[in-house]
């Protein structure tokens, strides 16, 4: 989710290369995120070729921010 949070959208191949995981593994993660309403999958044709773009929904961004805050809190607690 952090990868999608820092960009507007990315395709499957880009995420797979960045995260260095197998297509099957990424596909299963994305399906779960899509079911939760965190990720939107946009299917489009670019120059007559099918293209799958992925982007975080508003709900997904909000959930990620919340997660980030709680993670920060954990790190701050560990430091003190």
């Amino acid at each position: 989710m952090s990868q999608l949070y820092v960009v507007e959208s990315a395709d499957f191949l880009f995420l797979q290369k960045q995260l260095q995981i197998t297509p099957g593994n990424l596909s299963s993660h994305l399906s779960k995120l899509e079911e939760a309403g965190y990720v939107e999958i946009v299917k489009e044709f670019i120059e007559r070729k099918p293209h799958t773009a992925l982007e975080l929904t508003k709900k997904g961004r909000a959930a990620f921010r919340e997660y980030q805050q709680s993670l920060k809190q954990v790190f701050n607690d560990l430091q003190h």
Binding site: F12, Q16, P23, S27, K43, T52
Partner: peptide
Amino acid sequence: GDQAIANKAF
């Protein structure tokens, strides 16, 4: 194969 898998998966 990667893009094809992506397009099939969703």
